[in-house]
Simulated scan of single mutants.
Amino acid sequence: MADTPLSTLNNGVEMPVLGFGVFQTPPEETRSAVDAALRAGYRHIDTAAAYGNEREVGEAIANSGIGRPEVFIETKIWISDYGYDQTLHGFDKSARKLGVDQIDLLILHQALPTEFDRTLQAYRALETLLADGKVRAIGVSNFMVDHLTALLDQATVIPAVNQIEVHPYFTQHEVQAFGARQGILTQAWSPIGGITFYRDGEHTSTLQDPVIREIAQAHGKTPAQVMLRWHVQQGRSAIPKSTKPARIAENFDIFDFELTDAQLDAIDGLDTGRRGGPEPADITLANFGRPIPEA
Rank of each mutant, 00 (worst) to 15 (best):
I66R: 15
G67C: 09
D146Y: 03
L148T: 12
L185M: 14
T87M: 01
G90R: 00
A131N: 12
I79K: 05
E59F: 07
A188C: 06
S80V: 07
A62G: 14
R55F: 00
I164M: 01
L152Y: 10
L130D: 00
I77V: 15
G133K: 04
T149F: 04
S190P: 10
S94D: 01
E174R: 15
L126D: 02
R55H: 09
E127M: 05
D101R: 04
A48Q: 01
E54Y: 02
F116P: 06
L88W: 11
Q154G: 11
Q163V: 07
A125R: 07
W78C: 11
P191M: 11
A188K: 08
R96L: 06
L148K: 04
N162I: 11
N162M: 02
H89E: 15
M144T: 11
G99E: 08
Q102N: 03
R181V: 08
I61D: 15
Y82M: 14
F116W: 10
T128R: 10
S64G: 02
L185W: 08
I103G: 06
Q172H: 04
P69Q: 15
G65E: 00
Q176G: 12
R124T: 01
I192N: 05
D104R: 01
G65V: 11
F178P: 01
G90F: 06
L120T: 00
E56V: 07
Q187A: 14
